[in-house]
Nucleic acid binder design. Structure first.
Length: 271
DNA sequence: CCCAAGTCCTGGTTGC
DNA sequence: TGCAACCAGGACTTGG
Protein backbone atom coordinates (compact mmCIF):
# COMPACT_ATOMS: atom_id res chain seq x y z
CA UNK A 1 0.00 0.00 0.00
CA UNK A 2 1.80 3.10 -1.13
CA UNK A 3 1.36 5.76 1.52
CA UNK A 4 3.42 8.88 2.06
CA UNK A 5 6.79 7.19 2.86
CA UNK A 6 6.51 4.83 -0.10
CA UNK A 7 5.60 7.64 -2.49
CA UNK A 8 8.42 9.79 -1.09
CA UNK A 9 10.91 6.96 -1.65
CA UNK A 10 9.79 6.68 -5.26
CA UNK A 11 9.85 10.47 -5.67
CA UNK A 12 13.47 10.68 -4.53
CA UNK A 13 14.57 8.02 -6.97
CA UNK A 14 12.70 9.56 -9.87
CA UNK A 15 13.98 13.04 -8.98
CA UNK A 16 17.51 11.70 -9.29
CA UNK A 17 16.98 10.12 -12.65
CA UNK A 18 14.20 11.78 -14.64
CA UNK A 19 14.70 15.55 -14.78
CA UNK A 20 16.25 16.61 -18.08
CA UNK A 21 15.25 13.42 -19.87
CA UNK A 22 12.61 13.22 -22.59
CA UNK A 23 9.69 10.86 -22.97
CA UNK A 24 10.07 9.41 -26.44
CA UNK A 25 6.68 7.70 -26.62
CA UNK A 26 3.84 6.12 -24.66
CA UNK A 27 3.83 2.42 -25.39
CA UNK A 28 0.86 1.36 -23.30
CA UNK A 29 -2.16 3.06 -21.68
CA UNK A 30 -5.04 1.81 -19.54
CA UNK A 31 -8.11 3.99 -20.30
CA UNK A 32 -9.89 3.01 -17.07
CA UNK A 33 -7.11 4.56 -14.98
CA UNK A 34 -6.73 7.71 -17.07
CA UNK A 35 -8.32 11.03 -16.04
CA UNK A 36 -8.57 14.50 -17.59
CA UNK A 37 -7.13 13.26 -20.91
CA UNK A 38 -7.73 10.62 -23.59
CA UNK A 39 -5.32 7.84 -24.50
CA UNK A 40 -4.57 9.53 -27.83
CA UNK A 41 -4.04 12.97 -26.28
CA UNK A 42 -1.78 11.53 -23.58
CA UNK A 43 0.48 9.99 -26.22
CA UNK A 44 0.59 13.07 -28.44
CA UNK A 45 1.11 15.46 -25.51
CA UNK A 46 3.96 13.51 -23.92
CA UNK A 47 5.88 12.65 -27.07
CA UNK A 48 9.26 14.40 -27.03
CA UNK A 49 8.47 16.19 -23.78
CA UNK A 50 11.24 16.77 -21.24
CA UNK A 51 10.70 16.07 -17.51
CA UNK A 52 11.51 19.12 -15.39
CA UNK A 53 10.90 18.02 -11.80
CA UNK A 54 9.32 15.34 -9.61
CA UNK A 55 7.46 16.50 -6.49
CA UNK A 56 4.94 15.03 -4.06
CA UNK A 57 1.88 16.10 -2.13
CA UNK A 58 0.49 13.54 0.28
CA UNK A 59 0.25 10.31 -1.71
CA UNK A 60 0.28 12.11 -5.07
CA UNK A 61 3.35 12.22 -7.26
CA UNK A 62 3.65 15.19 -9.63
CA UNK A 63 5.85 15.01 -12.71
CA UNK A 64 6.25 18.49 -14.15
CA UNK A 65 6.98 18.51 -17.87
CA UNK A 66 8.09 21.27 -20.18
CA UNK A 67 5.23 23.28 -21.61
CA UNK A 68 3.52 23.63 -18.21
CA UNK A 69 2.17 20.07 -18.30
CA UNK A 70 1.76 18.04 -15.11
CA UNK A 71 1.44 14.29 -14.92
CA UNK A 72 -0.35 13.54 -11.62
CA UNK A 73 0.13 9.96 -10.44
CA UNK A 74 -1.71 8.14 -7.63
CA UNK A 75 -0.58 4.57 -7.00
CA UNK A 76 -3.81 3.46 -5.36
CA UNK A 77 -3.44 0.24 -3.47
CA UNK A 78 -1.14 -1.95 -5.55
CA UNK A 79 0.51 0.52 -7.92
CA UNK A 80 4.24 0.39 -8.72
CA UNK A 81 6.46 2.73 -10.71
CA UNK A 82 9.51 0.98 -12.11
CA UNK A 83 12.47 2.26 -14.05
CA UNK A 84 13.60 -0.53 -16.29
CA UNK A 85 16.56 -0.82 -18.56
CA UNK A 86 15.08 -3.03 -21.22
CA UNK A 87 12.16 -5.43 -21.27
CA UNK A 88 8.85 -4.57 -19.61
CA UNK A 89 8.41 -6.86 -16.64
CA UNK A 90 5.53 -9.16 -15.88
CA UNK A 91 1.79 -8.71 -15.82
CA UNK A 92 -0.42 -5.79 -14.90
CA UNK A 93 1.57 -3.18 -16.80
CA UNK A 94 -0.97 -0.35 -17.26
CA UNK A 95 1.27 2.38 -18.66
CA UNK A 96 4.69 2.29 -20.25
CA UNK A 97 6.67 5.43 -21.08
CA UNK A 98 9.74 5.05 -23.27
CA UNK A 99 12.57 7.36 -22.24
CA UNK A 100 15.26 8.76 -24.48
CA UNK A 101 18.65 7.15 -24.37
CA UNK A 102 19.22 3.42 -24.39
CA UNK A 103 15.71 2.01 -24.44
CA UNK A 104 14.96 2.56 -20.77
CA UNK A 105 11.38 3.03 -19.69
CA UNK A 106 9.14 4.15 -16.85
CA UNK A 107 6.49 1.51 -16.18
CA UNK A 108 3.29 1.89 -14.12
CA UNK A 109 2.14 -1.54 -12.94
CA UNK A 110 -1.06 -1.95 -10.94
CA UNK A 111 -2.74 -5.28 -10.33
CA UNK A 112 -5.99 -3.81 -8.95
CA UNK A 113 -6.35 -0.70 -11.09
CA UNK A 114 -7.04 1.62 -8.15
CA UNK A 115 -4.22 3.82 -9.41
CA UNK A 116 -4.92 6.98 -11.43
CA UNK A 117 -3.01 9.02 -13.96
CA UNK A 118 -3.97 12.60 -14.83
CA UNK A 119 -2.46 14.92 -17.41
CA UNK A 120 -3.30 18.58 -16.89
CA UNK A 121 -2.02 21.93 -18.06
CA UNK A 122 -1.01 24.77 -15.73
CA UNK A 123 -1.06 22.79 -12.46
CA UNK A 124 -1.75 19.39 -10.94
CA UNK A 125 -5.09 17.56 -11.11
CA UNK A 126 -7.92 19.29 -9.25
CA UNK A 127 -8.15 16.53 -6.65
CA UNK A 128 -4.66 17.41 -5.41
CA UNK A 129 -5.78 20.90 -4.44
CA UNK A 130 -8.50 19.50 -2.17
CA UNK A 131 -5.95 17.99 0.20
CA UNK A 132 -4.78 19.23 3.56
CA UNK A 133 -1.14 19.96 4.42
CA UNK A 134 1.42 17.24 3.88
CA UNK A 135 1.41 15.07 7.02
CA UNK A 136 5.21 14.75 7.03
CA UNK A 137 6.65 17.98 5.56
CA UNK A 138 3.72 20.36 6.00
CA UNK A 139 4.36 23.21 8.43
CA UNK A 140 1.40 22.36 10.69
CA UNK A 141 1.81 22.39 14.48
CA UNK A 142 0.09 20.60 17.37
CA UNK A 143 -2.13 23.70 17.72
CA UNK A 144 -3.16 23.41 14.08
CA UNK A 145 -3.91 19.73 14.63
CA UNK A 146 -6.06 20.61 17.65
CA UNK A 147 -8.09 22.98 15.45
CA UNK A 148 -8.51 20.30 12.77
CA UNK A 149 -9.71 17.79 15.39
CA UNK A 150 -12.05 20.13 17.26
CA UNK A 151 -15.71 19.12 17.43
CA UNK A 152 -15.30 16.11 15.15
CA UNK A 153 -17.34 13.09 16.17
CA UNK A 154 -15.75 10.71 13.67
CA UNK A 155 -13.29 8.19 15.13
CA UNK A 156 -9.62 9.16 15.26
CA UNK A 157 -8.71 6.55 12.67
CA UNK A 158 -11.16 8.07 10.17
CA UNK A 159 -9.62 11.47 10.81
CA UNK A 160 -6.11 10.21 10.07
CA UNK A 161 -7.27 8.60 6.83
CA UNK A 162 -9.05 11.77 5.65
CA UNK A 163 -6.68 13.39 3.15
CA UNK A 164 -8.53 16.72 3.39
CA UNK A 165 -7.20 17.16 6.95
CA UNK A 166 -3.63 15.86 6.74
CA UNK A 167 -2.41 14.33 3.49
CA UNK A 168 -0.38 11.15 3.28
CA UNK A 169 -1.46 8.74 6.05
CA UNK A 170 -3.02 5.43 4.98
CA UNK A 171 -4.19 2.34 6.80
CA UNK A 172 -0.83 0.91 7.85
CA UNK A 173 0.72 4.12 9.18
CA UNK A 174 -2.59 5.11 10.82
CA UNK A 175 -2.53 1.96 12.99
CA UNK A 176 1.16 2.46 13.82
CA UNK A 177 0.69 6.14 14.66
CA UNK A 178 -2.24 5.42 16.99
CA UNK A 179 -0.32 2.63 18.72
CA UNK A 180 2.69 4.88 19.17
CA UNK A 181 0.50 7.66 20.61
CA UNK A 182 -1.35 5.22 22.91
CA UNK A 183 -4.69 6.37 21.49
CA UNK A 184 -7.68 4.21 20.55
CA UNK A 185 -8.69 4.32 16.87
CA UNK A 186 -12.33 4.41 18.08
CA UNK A 187 -11.91 7.58 20.11
CA UNK A 188 -13.99 10.53 18.82
CA UNK A 189 -11.48 12.87 17.17
CA UNK A 190 -12.78 15.96 18.93
CA UNK A 191 -12.47 14.46 22.42
CA UNK A 192 -8.69 14.55 22.82
CA UNK A 193 -7.00 16.47 25.63
CA UNK A 194 -4.22 18.94 24.69
CA UNK A 195 -1.66 16.41 25.91
CA UNK A 196 -3.12 13.70 23.72
CA UNK A 197 -3.13 15.99 20.69
CA UNK A 198 0.54 16.64 21.34
CA UNK A 199 1.27 12.92 21.45
CA UNK A 200 -0.66 12.37 18.23
CA UNK A 201 1.19 15.18 16.43
CA UNK A 202 4.55 13.75 17.50
CA UNK A 203 3.57 10.21 16.51
CA UNK A 204 2.45 11.30 13.01
CA UNK A 205 5.82 12.92 12.32
CA UNK A 206 7.84 10.16 13.95
CA UNK A 207 6.21 7.20 12.20
CA UNK A 208 6.23 8.83 8.76
CA UNK A 209 9.85 9.84 9.30
CA UNK A 210 10.74 6.27 10.23
CA UNK A 211 8.89 5.02 7.15
CA UNK A 212 10.88 7.35 4.89
CA UNK A 213 14.18 6.39 6.56
CA UNK A 214 13.44 2.69 6.02
CA UNK A 215 12.39 3.35 2.41
CA UNK A 216 8.78 2.27 2.83
CA UNK A 217 6.73 -0.71 3.93
CA UNK A 218 6.67 -3.81 1.74
CA UNK A 219 3.93 -5.83 3.36
CA UNK A 220 2.22 -6.74 0.09
CA UNK A 221 3.03 -5.20 -3.28
CA UNK A 222 5.18 -2.18 -2.62
CA UNK A 223 8.64 -1.96 -4.18
CA UNK A 224 10.74 1.05 -5.19
CA UNK A 225 11.58 2.04 -8.77
CA UNK A 226 14.28 -0.62 -8.92
CA UNK A 227 11.98 -3.33 -7.61
CA UNK A 228 13.51 -3.43 -4.12
CA UNK A 229 11.50 -3.90 -0.93
CA UNK A 230 11.48 -1.36 1.89
CA UNK A 231 12.18 -2.07 5.57
CA UNK A 232 9.33 -0.56 7.60
CA UNK A 233 7.36 -3.84 7.68
CA UNK A 234 9.90 -5.18 10.18
CA UNK A 235 8.92 -2.50 12.70
CA UNK A 236 5.14 -3.01 12.77
CA UNK A 237 3.67 -3.05 16.27
CA UNK A 238 -0.05 -2.86 15.49
CA UNK A 239 -0.96 -3.28 11.80
CA UNK A 240 -1.86 -6.90 11.09
CA UNK A 241 -1.00 -8.00 14.65
CA UNK A 242 -4.52 -8.68 15.94
CA UNK A 243 -4.57 -11.86 18.01
CA UNK A 244 -0.92 -11.37 18.96
CA UNK A 245 0.35 -9.91 22.19
CA UNK A 246 0.96 -6.21 22.64
CA UNK A 247 4.66 -5.32 22.48
CA UNK A 248 4.07 -2.63 25.11
CA UNK A 249 1.77 -4.19 27.72
CA UNK A 250 1.35 -7.87 26.76
CA UNK A 251 -2.43 -7.81 26.30
CA UNK A 252 -3.94 -9.32 23.14
CA UNK A 253 -4.44 -6.97 20.21
CA UNK A 254 -7.94 -6.93 18.72
CA UNK A 255 -9.33 -6.25 15.27
CA UNK A 256 -12.18 -3.91 14.43
CA UNK A 257 -13.59 -2.29 11.33
CA UNK A 258 -13.14 1.47 11.63
CA UNK A 259 -13.86 3.87 8.79
CA UNK A 260 -14.47 0.75 6.71
CA UNK A 261 -10.91 -0.45 7.20
CA UNK A 262 -9.39 -3.36 9.10
CA UNK A 263 -7.89 -1.93 12.27
CA UNK A 264 -5.62 -3.59 14.85
CA UNK A 265 -5.08 -2.04 18.27
CA UNK A 266 -4.45 -2.82 21.91
CA UNK A 267 -7.62 -2.44 23.98
CA UNK A 268 -5.51 -2.32 27.11
CA UNK A 269 -3.01 0.48 26.44
CA UNK A 270 -4.62 2.51 23.64
CA UNK A 271 -7.26 4.79 25.16
C1' DC B 1 -17.52 -16.18 0.57
C1' DC B 2 -14.49 -12.99 3.00
C1' DC B 3 -10.50 -10.04 3.01
C1' DA B 4 -7.26 -6.61 1.37
C1' DA B 5 -7.79 -0.73 0.77
C1' DG B 6 -7.73 4.70 -1.46
C1' DT B 7 -10.88 7.55 -3.21
C1' DC B 8 -15.28 9.00 -5.00
C1' DC B 9 -20.10 9.16 -4.43
C1' DT B 10 -24.60 8.97 -2.16
C1' DG B 11 -27.83 9.64 1.23
C1' DG B 12 -28.90 10.30 6.00
C1' DT B 13 -27.75 12.95 10.33
C1' DT B 14 -26.18 16.71 13.17
C1' DG B 15 -26.03 21.15 14.93
C1' DC B 16 -25.71 26.11 14.32
C1' DT C 1 -36.74 25.76 10.31
C1' DG C 2 -33.20 25.94 6.81
C1' DC C 3 -29.02 24.47 5.30
C1' DA C 4 -24.24 23.48 5.24
C1' DA C 5 -21.15 20.54 7.29
C1' DC C 6 -20.44 16.13 8.67
C1' DC C 7 -20.29 11.12 8.65
C1' DA C 8 -21.20 6.10 7.45
C1' DG C 9 -21.18 2.92 4.04
C1' DG C 10 -21.22 1.20 -0.86
C1' DA C 11 -18.82 0.94 -5.37
C1' DC C 12 -14.90 0.17 -7.82
C1' DT C 13 -10.82 -3.37 -8.69
C1' DT C 14 -8.62 -8.43 -8.78
C1' DG C 15 -6.13 -11.83 -6.35
C1' DG C 16 -5.08 -14.60 -1.86
Amino acid sequence: MPELPEVETIRRQLANRLPGRRIVSVERSEPFMLRDVSVAKLASSLRGRRVESVTRRGKFLLLSLEGDLVLTVHLGMTGQLLLQAEKPSGDHVRFSFILEGGGSRLVFRDMRKFGRLHLTHGGPAARVEAMGPDAWLGDWTADDLARLLARRRAPLKAFLLDQRRLAGVGNIYADEILFEAGLSPLRPAGALSPGEVGRLAAAVREKLDEGVRLRGCSISDYVDVEGRAGGFQGTLKAYGRHGQSCLRCGATLVRAIVAGRGTAFCPSCQH
